[in-house]
Design a protein around this nucleic acid. Structure first.
Length: 492
RNA sequence: GGCGCGGUACCCAAGUGGUAAGGGAGAGGUCUGCAAAACCUUUAUGCGUCGGUUCGAUCCCGACCCGCGCCUCCA
């Protein structure tokens, strides 16, 4: 078996496989770095990460490219308003984006491609399109792609151009296009505006051209898989296809994967509805990075995910359950031998996990397989039927799960601490929940001291004092767990 | 208006032409100085509504109702 994914282009679930002897070429549309990333962005990037990690687990060599759009209208406008060169403006948000990916356990692709570092490639692609008669120069010096020259236009998004109202939404600034649907490849700039001086004249690239130029640069004229959010299907990806295939005469991406938008509290996320959240917003509210990642994977990428605060709490508990289970196994203390029934169940969970992901990245199925195993192994252990030789195979399955889902290792404290430091630097501590601030006001030394005091009280059978200390810690978000081999603490 | 997706228990949610995964939450129990964690039991004769096809439909077909997305910058 191999990975099968829904291909937007064909409308079918198809096997994804590289060309013989080559790595699988993946181009995933990245962010426009004009602001902090929001959870909608990260739903896409986390699912790309799930895909990436799963393919690595299947030992498929990858060549994965993600673009960083570091020049566009919003960036130009915001940078100008801040009186900064665009590079200074975008550097901050690019850095923040990469930190956010790291916070969510998202692996870096093989190549990060910045638009501003690939201007020559874009210019030569546009020149090629002009030579081939697919692009033209408008009166104001901008270049446009002539959609009428590409018969396949609309094949990805299944749009019939003839049926679309032409002219209903013409941008008044772009009066010099031959057809309203034609899109800008190169935007001529007015004197004083940020620009590149090129053989096309002074200007800057249109949005779509960067992906065509950079995908081709790193992956060749044809490659295996192109990924993005569902909104990018039209017009962005459609335009990429038109440009690239017109220039090369070859199929651009063979397989297209689109991640569906999420809803927040049942509504499309938008600033006006007040349900717009960046990753940092959530961290400052006290939610853990692992819970956010886990929630984002709870619904397969092609289904709409309703992101809610209740869901975040549920995911927190679900992750805790998995971590507790892993701790229990590592702690040991099981009878010698091997329970063959449990071993069989372990193998079954392993197979079901992989089968779920192979089936169009069904993360819900894959997760269910692991939770089945957790329940079975826990109940076996309670009955004394989990034996020492069962431990390693189960831990292997857990490791396999975590190589894809990446929530078991607890990096949450470190991530939250970084978010608090960022808020401090940016003067945004007011956005941090008081509860969270209290929770992180205790140093580990102080916590250890209080636990030692409580242990002394317990030894003296002064349970009232012991409970008072537990209670005090609890109000600051520190949970204590007594066990035969000592007291463990964790942050709520 | 055009194209597309979805409506499954208290909440989130997977799934299949043959009788409903998983997570969370609630209740009861085991364990514990008290807790926590963990485990057990329990919560859909039912899968938006109405028809149809079928031996049999939540799953196929049709109509309708509701929600959502894209068609314009957006992951």
């Amino acid at each position: 078996m191999a990975l099968r994914l829904y291909n937007t282009l064909s409308g079918q679930v198809e096997e994804v496989a590289p060309q013989p002897g080559r790595p699988l070429g993946i181009y995933a549309c990245g962010p426009t770095v004009y602001d902090y990333g929001h959870i909608g962005n990260f739903r896409t990037f986390v699912h790309v990460d799930i895909l990436r990690r799963f393919l690595e687990q299947q030992e498929m060599p990858l060549r994965h490219v993600m673009n960083i759009t570091d020049v566009d209208d919003k960036i130009m406008r915001n940078a100008a308003a801040a009186g900064k060169p665009i590079g200074d403006y975008t550097a901050k948000y690019e850095q923040a984006f990469l930190e956010d990916l790291d916070a969510l356990g998202v692996e870096q692709p093989e190549y990060l491609a910045r638009a501003t570092e690939h201007i020559p490639q874009m210019v030569s692609l546009i020149e090629k399109l002009v030579e081939r008669g697919c692009a033209y120069r408008g009166e104001n010096g901008s270049y446009y792609f002539r959609i009428a020259s590409f018969p396949g236009y609309g094949k990805l998004s299944k749009k019939d151009l003839a049926g679309m109202e032409d002219g209903a939404r013409v941008d008044v600034d772009e009066y010099d296009k031959d057809s309203a649907r034609d899109f800008a490849l190169w935007k001529a700039t007015k004197p004083g505006e940020f620009h590149w001086d090129t053989t096309l004249g002074a200007g800057r690239p249109g949005w779509h051209i960067e992906c065509s130029a950079m995908a081709t640069e790193y992956l060749g004229d044809s490659f295996d898989l192109h990924i993005g959010g569902e909104d990018l299907m039209f017009p962005h990806h459609e335009n990429e296809i038109a440009q690239s295939e017109s220039a090369t005469g070859k199929t651009f991406a063979r397989h297209w994967m689109h991640v569906r938008f999420l809803l927040v509290e049942g509504k499309k996320m938008s600033k006006s509805l007040g349900n717009f959240y960046t990753l940092r917003d959530l961290l400052l509210r006290g939610y853990k990075a692992s819970a956010i990642r886990f929630l984002l994977t709870s619904v397969p990428y092609r289904n709409q995910l309703n992101f809610t605060f209740d869901g975040l709490v549920e995911s927190t508990h679900a992750v805790e359950r998995l971590r507790s289970f892993a701790d229990r196994l590592r702690k040991g203390g099981f009878p010698a031998g091997m329970n063959p029934t449990l071993l069989a169940a372990t193998k079954h969970a392993d197979a079901a996990f992989t089968a779920g992901l192979e089936d169009d990245l069904n993360t819900a199925e894959a997760r269910a397989a692991i939770f089945d195993l957790v329940r079975l192994a826990n109940s076996s252990a309670d009955r004394g039927e989990l034996q020492t030789e069962n431990v390693a195979p189960i831990l292997e399955v857990l490791a396999k799960f975590d190589a894809v889902f990446a929530v078991l290792e607890d990096r949450d404290d470190a991530v939250t601490r970084l978010a608090l430091q960022w808020a401090e630097r940016e003067g945004r501590m007011g956005e941090a929940s008081p509860d969270l601030v209290a929770r992180y006001s205790l140093t580990e030394e102080r916590i250890d001291q209080m636990i030692a005091d409580r242990n002394a009280a317990r030894k003296a059978r002064d349970f009232a004092r012991a409970d008072a200390i537990r209670q005090e810690l609890a109000t600051k978000g520190i949970l204590l767990e007594d066990s035969p081999d000592g007291v463990r603490w964790r942050r709520k």
